[in-house]
Simulated assay, not measured.
Amino acid sequence: MKLQLKKIAEQVMVITGATSGIGLTTARKAAQRGARLVLVARNEDALRQLAFELTKRGNEVIHVVADVGIEEDVRKVAQAAIDRFGGFDTWVNNAGVSIFGRTEDISMEDQRRLFQTNFWGVVHGSLIAAKHLRQRGGAIINIGSEVSDHALPLQGMYAASKHAVKGFTDSFRLELEEDKAPVAVTLIKPAALDTMFVEHAKNYMAVEPRLPPPIYAPDIAADAILYAAENFKRDIFVGGTAKLASSTAHYAPRTMDSYMKRFMFRQQKTSAPARDRTQNSLYHPGPDLLERQGLPGPVFESSLYTSAAIRPRIVTAMMFGVGLAIAAWWRMRPQPSGMRPG
């Protein structure tokens, strides 16, 4: 399989969940680099505003109102891209939502709805994109999570859906590679991000939910997505915390369980009373055109771990430079009497 991924400026990119958080940040960054965009979300007003914003900057943009949990909607997205641009080069399966609360308290209807978006939305997008990309070549980028690799209380169905996304993505990648299809399949695994995640989630708890620290900027995830659109990488962790959690769960699962029981219940709860439970985006679009919610506490604007993963040459050069500087300092420092630098 010979993968020939285009530069962003030469690509047509399909982005689901494009009006909020990671999707919105990615769309704006891709537009800045000259990509032609197919923006997908359920909120038609937000899509129109975003398309207008990017078109004013000189980008070629179309938008498609779609629910990724409905296969026919996703087929319409692909057809719209083909009709307008002749096809697409990268398909980003980003749309998703969560539910906070103990699993036993959550209605089966809500649990199924979460899976319809988080899992089946990825399946629909991946299968439909692959059918086109087998002939053209390109990338499928699926947004998983750090909880693709470990359990998380109070967001059990979300964690389960992201485990399912990982299993599907890894299996589908193998099948495409065995067929020698020119399609790169990447799984992005973000840590907690300052997006509209909490605002959009449905909450069954008596208090308002929150994401456990550390919190990272959505720009880091967007940069990872754009890297994967140009360079095949099997998976990318967004934030060093995501990699640490995954490794701990793999090598020391009971240690990870103990940590989760001790910290993750209280770290996902605030002291504020819960708002009206109907205020969520599980079934209908909520507040859009915001990249960040503005979560309290520090937000990491960069991740050395992720930078090393997607820019290994730059980081290697930086470390080499640091090494040279240390060596130079060591040789130039005053030496005790009778000693010479080696």
Rank of each mutant, 00 (worst) to 15 (best):
L304Y: 08
L304M: 04
L304D: 11
Y305K: 00
Y305W: 03
T306C: 04
T306M: 04
S307L: 04
S307I: 02
A308W: 13
A308E: 13
A308S: 13
A309T: 14
A309S: 14
I310R: 01
R311L: 06
P312G: 04
P312T: 07
R313Y: 11
R313N: 12
I314C: 01
I314S: 05
I314H: 06
I314A: 06
V315D: 00
V315R: 00
T316G: 11
T316H: 10
A317L: 15
A317E: 13
A317Y: 11
M318I: 15
M318F: 15
M318Q: 15
M318V: 15
M319R: 13
F320A: 15
F320G: 14
G321D: 11
V322I: 15
V322Y: 07
L324S: 11
L324N: 08
L324I: 13
A325R: 02
I326F: 12
I326L: 14
I326W: 12
A327M: 12
A327H: 09
A328H: 00
A328R: 00
W329L: 08
W329N: 05
W330Y: 03
W330D: 07
W330C: 01
R331W: 14
R331E: 14
M332D: 07
M332K: 01
R333I: 09
R333N: 05
Q335Y: 02
Q335H: 06
Q335I: 04
